[in-house]
Design a protein around this nucleic acid. Structure first.
Lengths: 216, 216
DNA sequence: ACAAAACCTGTCTAAATGGTCAAGATTTGA
DNA sequence: TCAAATCTTGACCATTTAGACAGGTTTTGT
């Protein structure tokens, strides 16, 4: 994967195109995306895009690769000895921040899943599934140790994903309903606090820092 | 809106096309959808699709109209005298059921919002926003009456939307991670129970029926 | 029964779109 | 310095795609 990236790091255009493609694919999906539109976003002639990427699908795959490589799951280095309230709170806040600050990646991913994950079904079952199962065990150990109420750990993870990514994927709706023009830091904190508090309480946990401002 | 639907209710093809278009638009978005693919799904010649709908955009709008007309918001006829736990529980269960049983509509909507809601921005600000504000007031009255803990009602509604629609929009991911082939009734109940319980507890409410099987 | 209206569809067209190519510009290494 | 390698791009092509249309069939009202 990542066709030419290996060869020469000197080509800045490679990254530019990848970024432009990410935006175009995020808003229009694979079929809806136009190579010309990607070229326009990158401010390059279309033929130049084709010099770096053989065709639309390979560019799409390169973008997916690039996004996935960026995602190390924040919940990953958590173990039984950690405090579940702090671990989940940290995870939720990181996810909310990501949604607000880098919504395109989330949207592209959403678009791909929406279409039935034709190019990610393997990644989901081979990478994501084992990882979730793994995290599930930690949560179960927390529950067995009486550190939190008994619930379904998988559905809990889905809930965290759903609520946090919602602010990236449905930004247009959130802004429209709130009567706002754009996101700001206040909203990040408000959403972080609400989401963390509600979900933690929902699991019988006491939220760590109830007050405002949650960096990290 | 709904170009020819007014004239004659006799044309069953109209509905067939609408349904076929809904599926195609739900998976590929407006730009990604192909008129030929819609015709194929409807098992009709493409020219026949064009007989009923002037062009792609008008068909897309008709589909959106059709979906929106179907959605009466379940939380709509709820007032201060109702028990918030029962009202929210009922709402959540209805939403989960809708996600499992009619995912296409949810996906089409998601696709439109993902693209920045170009054809729904007006609906969001003129219809959805007032409705949310209206429901917000009821929730606030519940909080003032000490019937539930104080939280942000708008974010609460977002959370319910996000968690329930997740099972429609991200079906491919949910199935992949759970290692399943398809949804079944057990999962509907499991998700309904988990979602209702977690969110209600998150708002300081006691979930009404904790045990399994929650129809309606 | 029959004309008008509504409906159906094979065929066609103009535009959009993904992708190629060859010729030129620039960079690189020796 | 200069040739090979890499990069850039305008022009071009083949295919796909949205949509038009004319001539046919069926339905409808009287």
């Amino acid at each position: 994967m990542s066709p030419k990236a290996v060869k020469k790091p000197r080509d800045k255009h490679f990254t530019t195109i990848l970024l432009a493609a990410q935006e175009e694919f995020a808003t229009h999906g694979l079929k809806g995306a136009r190579m010309q539109a990607i070229a326009d976003r990158a401010d390059l002639p279309k033929a130049n895009v084709h010099y770096y990427f053989k065709n639309k699908v390979s560019l799409y795959l390169a973008v997916l690769d690039n996004i996935i490589a960026t995602w190390d799951d924040f919940l990953n280095d958590v173990n039984v000895d950690d405090d579940p309230a702090i671990a989940l709170d940290t995870f939720i806040r990181a996810k909310v921040r990501l949604s607000f600050e880098n919504p395109t990646a989330s949207r592209l991913f959403a678009n791909e899943i929406l279409q039935g994950a034709p190019y990610l079904s393997n990644y989901i079952s081979e990478v994501l599934r084992p990882r979730v199962i793994n995290r599930t065990k930690v949560i179960e150990e927390w529950m067995n140790a009486g550190k939190m109420a008994a619930t379904d750990p998988v559905l809990l993870i889905f809930m965290i994903w759903a609520t946090t990514q919602h602010y990236a994927d449905f930004q247009a709706q959130v802004l429209g309903i709130m009567g706002r023009k754009e996101y700001d830091d206040d909203l990040i904190n408000q959403v972080s606090n609400f989401t963390s508090q509600t979900i933690l309480r929902g699991c019988g946990l006491e939220p760590p820092n109830t007050n405002a401002r949650g960096n990290q």
